[in-house]
Design a protein around this nucleic acid. Structure first.
Length: 796
RNA sequence: GCGGACGUGGCGGAACCGGUAGACGCAAGGGACUUAAAAUCCCUCGGGCCUUGUCCCGUGCGGGUUCGACUCCCGCCGUCCGCACCA
């Protein structure tokens, strides 16, 4: 099954609506029609009977049902949270959608805002999503690693410090911290809490200086963090934390800009000796640095930490120092001992933390799937009953002002509460479009099912055998989809955990850029390449600056129009070129010369097939009993190529497959007699065989040409329906082989010998060789290494 | 800063488990055909040497392991990607 559909909700449609005064739906379906027409020209074997768009009411109807199922299963949560606010798109972004502090689509600097949001509880599956990565053995290691890092599991200890005020009086509120380095507790010299920590919030109310410090931190927040990162800043509170194991020792407590509220407890203890951030902070504020881990052979008294924290604990032979009852223990032993004591005392517990956060899906936009919830003053937030679904988008929205058109709409949000019947309002947020793309593959299994999916169809088809996409989806789409398939299983939509068994991340087609002297970008068809390799602007004849190959983009004009290529060279030339040069996982540069090369191959193959058709016996002629040397040589070359191409395609090494097809074509060219004399029957038969095999194995790349060639060879069937040919095993094995001969590792000659010759015979033959004897000279032969069918090396 | 990948001719790239480095294509140069051009076909195409060979050097740099290293190990240099103070 090779279906195609459209991920069609999202901002571009809405932006077009604002800029061009066209309704998002109209704009979207027009684009779909245009893209579908282009795709059809490419001759891809797509199953269009399963086509749908995520903005089809039927699709988002099912998605709303799914949302309600997740809600019931406890996988949906509404909570206030600090969110990433995109001030240009006027919407909320997930962490994953913020790149270098900027919105992934708008590029605007993202602000922090506190909003009430809908969340999918992906963290409920954090452990499972991490564990199951091990089983994804047909995924690129790179993507698996990125997901592991993204989930970011850590094992640590959660424990509380008792606080006291300046005078030493206990304060009736413990400070909870999280650490993975509880072994370093004796090196603790301060505590720090996040500017967003509840304690900081409360204290700031009566402390204008602290309030100001918090504002500074918020402003630094996401912007220019690259510059500000180095600077560690803190605000000292009038509290002290009592050291849990050192009676009478108290640690100053700071509000510090480098402590994140969203991870762990939003509070830490600082151990400057063994954490670079803590060390930077300690140096800035004149705090003590107590080393507590040192190489086992170092002198504890003389061991000091300078400007670099001592972090070398993994694998190295280190031991605890300056740590009372921990002295001499390894890091691991010390961790266990501290955890044991704290758990026994009831002041701490071992916990596991994840970097992964819950997935905020609320977007303040029109062109998305409405979240089927209703806010009632009396009943609270209640789900729309399934029988009332779908919650359809209103057609008559307006797009002439910023903010959410659903919220602006005069009537749409006003409904009666499904529980008490009183006037209430709809949720006006729509879902993140990553929700739409998190389960479409399941819908493809039964695209017209009345329910979310047909369970049997899902179990019959999924997981997807070979999923293909760009690396840009390595953590976003691919992690969400893995979560969705598990969540769908939990609420009863089939037994699938992993949606994609095999993953392949393909590269992009790039093109070099052209820039005129005055800075204008030029389209590729606005420039000429001169014989000396320089490039000039066609209109002016002026020299043009040629930039490196980059992702095609309208702004840099380094684009080529598919229509133009198809008109000039045809789709097969375009397909052949895209596959021929570069491995599919890498970016591939589109060049005029490259397409012309592909076009030449197509002409050449066409001519060759017609020559063969004129010489060869009719299709289906019985295979001769024996073949002469010429015919045999051709057959061996073609069958070897067939064998290679078959493997290359299986392994998605299309550029290598193309190279092997070229080799077969070259062999066939060489075998076609150029005179117009007679031709031996066995060679004629071999020519046909070679022509048919070459046509068949090139069909995946150049299907239209291949069908025409198939007809030219006298067939009236569809080549696409022919079985893939099988190489004859005996043609892949040579009875005599030529292997290189080395003397002391340097190639001196080669020897042609029976393939299965005994090593002793090979050795004898090699020592007879003139070149070998000369290379050995008068040195004694110490050893002869014979690697059967590979190489011989004489050591003298 | 942490993690990862990669570095091969003028270019894109081949080279299986450590066994002839540069397959195949592009570009370039030369030749044939042609009145001429296009197309096509043939030849050359990593570097060096007034030594042209049965030669020497060569897969980012420096070491190492091995009979043998583009491939494995150690240390550098460079490029690209991911993460971004995750305690």
């Amino acid at each position: 099954m090779h279906p195609m559909g459209w991920d069609a909700f999202g901002l571009p449609a809405e932006n077009a609506a604002m800029e061009q005064k066209v309704h998002p739906r109209e704009w979207t379906y027009e684009n779909i029609a245009a893209m579908k027409a282009q795709l059809k020209l490419l001759g891809l074997s797509l199953d269009w009977t399963r086509e749908f768009a995520t903005c089809d009411p039927d699709y988002y109807h099912q998605q709303q049902k799914l949302f309600l199922d997740f809600l019931q299963a406890g996988l949906v949560e509404r909570k206030t949270a600090m969110v990433n606010w995109d001030p240009v798109d006027h919407t909320v972004l997930a962490n994953e959608q913020v790149i270098d502090g900027r919105g992934w689509r708008s590029g605007a600097l993202v602000e922090k805002r506190e909003l009430s949001q809908w969340f999918l509880k992906i963290t409920a599956y954090a452990e499972e999503l991490l564990r199951a990565i091990d089983g994804l053995d047909k995924w690129p290691e790179k993507v698996r690693l990125m997901q592991r890092n993204w989930i970011g599991r850590s094992e640590g200890l959660r424990f509380s410090f008792e606080l006291e005020n300046e005078a030493g009086t206990a304060v009736d509120e413990p400070l909870m911290v999280y650490t993975t380095r509880h072994d370093t507790i004796f090196g603790a010299t301060f505590c720090a809490i996040s500017p967003d920590h509840p304690l900081a919030l409360r204290l700031a109310k009566d402390d204008p200086a602290l309030a100001e410090f918090r504002r500074e931190c918020a402003a630094l927040g996401t912007s220019e963090e690259a510059i500000e990162r180095a600077e560690k800043k803190g605000y000292k509170l009038a509290f002290y934390a009592r050291h849990p194991f050192r009676a009478g020792v108290r640690l100053p407590v700071y509000v510090a800009n480098f402590v994140l509220m969203s991870y762990g407890e939003g509070a830490i203890f600082g151990c400057p000796g063994h954490d670079q951030r803590d060390l930077d902070f300690a140096r800035a504020y004149g705090l003590d640095v107590i080393p507590v881990v040192a190489p086992r052979d170092a002198d504890p008294a003389g061991f000091e930490v300078g400007t670099d924290a001592f972090l070398d604990t993994e694998g190295a032979d280190v031991a605890m120092i300056n740590s009372d009852f921990l002295d001499g223990l390894s890091v691991e032993e010390a961790k266990s001992e501290i955890a044991r004591r704290m758990e026994a005392a009831g002041t701490g517990e071992r916990t596991v933390n994840y970097r992964l956060r819950d997935w905020g899906i609320s977007r303040q936009r029109y062109w998305g799937c409405p979240i089927p919830m209703i806010h009632c003053e009396v009943c609270g937030t209640v789900p729309v009953p399934k029988s009332d679904l779908p919650v359809l988008l209103p057609d008559d929205a307006t797009f002439d002002r910023p903010g959410n058109p659903l919220d602006h709409h005069p009537t749409w949000k006003h409904v009666n509460c499904p529980e008490c019947g009183r006037p209430a309002t709809r949720e006006t947020d729509t879902m993140d479009t990553f929700v739409d793309s998190s389960w479409y593959f399941a819908r493809f299994c039964s695209p017209r099912a009345a329910d979310v999916v047909d369970r049997d169809a899902v179990e019959a088809w999924l997981p997807v055998d070979q999923y293909i996409g760009g690396v840009e989806h390595a953590v976003l789409h691919l992690l969400y989809s893995r979560f969705f398939s598990r969540a769908m299983k939990q609420v009863g939509y089939g037994d699938i955990e992993e949606p994609f068994a095999g993953l392949f991340t393909q590269g992009m087609i790039t093109h070099e850029t052209y820039r005129a002297g005055d800075g204008r970008w030029l389209f590729p068809d606005e420039v000429d390449r001169q014989a000396d390799g320089s490039v000039t602007e066609r209109a002016t004849g002026e020299a043009v600056d040629v930039g490196s190959a980059e992702k095609m983009s309208k702004s840099r004009k380094n684009v080529v129009s598919p229509e133009g290529i198809l008109e000039t060279y045809g789709v097969d030339a375009a397909r052949w070129f895209m596959l021929s040069d570069t491995p599919p996982e890498r970016d591939s540069e589109w060049t005029e010369a490259g397409v012309e090369g592909a076009w030449r191959l197509i002409q050449r193959l066409w001519r060759l097939v017609h020559q063969v058709a004129a010489l060869a016996p009719p299709a289906g002629t019985a295979k001769p009993d024996s073949f002469g040397t010429e015919a045999d040589t051709l057959r061996r070359a073609v069958h070897r190529a067939l064998n290679s191409v078959t493997q290359d395609i299986e392994r998605l090494r299309f550029n290598v497959a193309v190279a092997h097809i070229y080799e077969a074509v070259n062999s066939l060219s060489a075998a076609v007699p150029d005179g117009n004399g007679g031709i031996a029957a066995d060679l004629a038969w071999a020519l046909r065989e070679a022509g048919e095999i070459i046509v068949r194995i090139s069909a995946p790349m150049v299907p239209h040409l291949a069908e025409s060639c198939w007809r030219a060879l006298g067939h009236d069937t569809l080549l696409a329906r022919q079985d893939w040919p099988q190489a004859e095993p005996e043609l892949l094995i040579e009875s005599t082989i030529t292997i290189p001969v080395q003397v002391n590792g340097k190639r001196r000659d080669e020897v042609t010998i029976a393939r299965d010759a005994a090593p002793s015979d090979v050795e004898a033959a090699v020592l007879e060789l003139e070149a070998v004897r000369r290379a050995i000279g008068d040195k004694p032969v110490r050893k002869v290494i014979v690697v059967p069918q590979r190489i011989v090396n004489v050591v003298a």
